[in-house]
Amino acid sequence: MMSLEQFENRNVSENGYYKVDIESYPETGWEKAKQVFSRTIRGELFVGLWVVMREMLKFDIHTVQYPKEKLPVGPRYRAVHEMQRLWESGTERCIGCGLCEKICISDCIRMDTRIDENSRKEVSEYTINLGRCIFCGYCAEVCPELAIVHGGRYENTSEQRAHFTDYEDMLTPFDMAVKGQVPEYPGFGAVTPHEDERVKSTPLAY
């Protein structure tokens, strides 16, 4: 049986905590007076003044003047979705498996699929309702083909949210893919390095 005390401390770890060094509070009038006096003399106010003055004089400004300057976006950043194509062939990577549609927790992805002339599954329409999308990244994470990814385009101001969900816009331009101008996607959902070493290979009879 767990005692009440143990129960209350059940989530408190024994180590890994710093104790903050707090002076004991003054009790007598004399002690209070001493504290006031010592604090007055210590001149902490002037330290503060000095620090800000020093920073102003150093003039080491950290502001990024956003529309003119832009910070690079990390590959794992989750901005508006992009649909990828395969290198060189330019084929759409999306196979229409519908996993993104299923996993989407805000239920904002919808796709229409059909069988094409070559008896393959084809995505005939694809939309993301960005008004509902919470950019959780599940769709990119579940995608088995690295077809839907989160791009770096975080500037999504427009008169219409729909402007961002036009399938043609989301899709990597065909020429760029064919020319190999699109780098292999490094971001959210991409294969991690040394993946080959972790996979057991299957025997082949060829």
Binding site: L99, P144, P203, A205
Partner: peptide, 30 residues
Amino acid sequence: QCGVCDQSGECELQNYTLEIGVDSQSYAIK
């Protein structure tokens, strides 16, 4: 091609492969 297969999700091959716990392959043929 489970991703596109119509049976995916109610496929007995999928189910039994998981049920039996096949996690590697020992056989091969052309």
